[in-house]
Design a protein around this nucleic acid. Structure first.
Length: 390
DNA sequence: AGGCGGAGAGTCCAGTTTAG
DNA sequence: CTAAACTGGACTCTCCGCCT
């Protein structure tokens, strides 16, 4: 009797399932015809995989944060603005256009028509965030190697802010309650020593190079001994990336700060929950600085070092890292010193207004003032607002 | 064989909605 | 009004296909 009852029950359930499935089919079929938008949605769906790859590349090489949805609706002015020069920071309008131009530059032409669609922003933003999260997750397992510290410090819930090497030597805070994080942490300077006149900013380029190498060439590119044994093509090969960009360098700096910070997650708005570091603003700050100074010889030298480290190194990075000949070192130091000198005296008459503006930002930031959230609305990417916040 | 990256399921947490 | 239920965002883990 028991078996019989169970069988009957089973049959009844199956019948019910069949009815529900049928109803579901009808509902989804109707849903398909209800909106005019659906052809559009299908179009985006068809290119979804390609779009996701582009979004991830965009998030690492161009902009750590997805562009605002409203911006995607606007059309690009016909003579496309050059977005990799200081000119983009002239006005708020030119900055927005540059963000859009950058996006279009990143996408293959056959995807252009998708950008203004409603669904695009949603799909693209999600992919940007997912890509960023997966890279940060990968980095977290290699952070010990990057900073030459015990890997256990970087377990997600480890109290990193209690370790003085991290808190004091790399991030530059004393650990007092309510203290803010400096915009230019010691880890950006050689020997982790902040130079008040910024003479050696980015001199500690190895950390940036290692971070980007891990993201672009895979985790094993960091280890000295084991050479790459095979595997799927790493991101750099997949994306055809041959050199780092200002966005990528800024990405690496922000990622390094995040990995050292006590924060456990990287929110979409770009603000650290525990540290209250405003990562979004820091990213904008460094990207602007890098774009404005990209062609300056001192920065060029550093970028060359980073590119060599990531793209030309075949094996044994420790040699390249630690035993560069002193003449090379000296030359680099001098070069950096010139960058700092320009910031101090502003005696370089060839500087454009925008370059001066970037130096202004830099000089103010050196005063150990943090780009920290002060319970205000997120500030847009502009030099003027940035300096006033500082 | 083993590294790489992606998909997707699962976890955790915080904010919001809903039932009582 | 409160507590339970739901929802959504971000991260984690595992598996799988691809590749050298």
């Amino acid at each position: 009797q028991g078996v019989k009852n169970a069988q009957l029950e089973n049959q009844a359930l199956k019948e019910r399932l069949r009815i529900v499935e049928e109803q579901n089919k009808i509902l989804s079929a109707n849903k398909g015809r209800r909106k005019k938008d659906d052809a559009v949605a299908e179009d985006i769906l068809a290119f979804e995989a390609e779009l996701k790859v582009c979004a991830k590349r965009y998030s690492l090489m161009v902009n750590m944060f997805p562009p605002p949805a409203a911006l995607l609706k606007t059309t690009l002015p016909d003579p496309a603005l050059s977005f990799n020069t200081a000119a983009r920071y002239a006005t708020t309008g030119s900055q927005e256009i540059a963000v859009l131009a950058e996006l279009y530059d990143m996408l293959p032409q056959h995807l252009y028509h998708l950008v203004p669609m409603n669904q695009f922003s949603n799909v693209f933003s999600k992919a940007v965030c997912a890509g960023r999260a997966s890279e940060l997750n990968k980095l977290r397992s290699a952070t010990g190697q990057i900073f030459e510290l015990p890997q256990c410090y970087f377990a997600i819930s480890y109290a990193r802010d209690t370790e003085t090497e991290i808190r004091h030597q790399l991030l530059g805070t004393t650990g007092k309650a309510g203290e803010s994080y400096p915009t230019l942490p010691p880890m950006l300077f050689p020997g982790n020593i902040v130079n008040c006149s910024c003479k050696t900013l980015f001199g500690n380029w190895q950390l940036i190079a290692k971070t980007l190498s891990c993201c672009l060439k895979g985790r094993t590119s960091l280890s000295n001994e084991s050479r790459r044994q095979g595997g799927a093509p790493p991101n750099a090969v997949k994306w055809g990336v041959m050199a780092v960009t200002p966005g990528a360098v800024a990405w690496a700096i922000v990622a390094n700060i995040f990995l050292l910070s006590p924060d456990q997650e990287f929110s979409q708005e770009g603000k650290g929950k525990t540290s209250r570091i405003n990562y979004g603003m820091i990213f904008m700050f460094f990207k602007e600085l890098l774009i404005c100074d990209w062609e300056k010889p001192c920065l060029k030298t550093i970028i060359k070092h980073i590119n060599t480290f990531i793209f030309e190194r075949t094996s044994c990075p420790s040699h390249d890292l630690n035993s560069r000949d002193s003449a090379d070192d000296l030359q680099e130091e001098m070069c950096l010193a010139r960058l700092g000198l320009a910031a101090d005296t502003e005696d370089d008459l060839s500087l454009s207004d925008n370059e001066n503006a970037s130096i202004d930002v830099l000089a103010k930031a050196t005063g150990n003032i943090a780009l920290r959230d002060s319970n205000e609305a997120p500030t847009p990417l502009s030099t003027t607002t940035m300096t006033s916040t500082l």
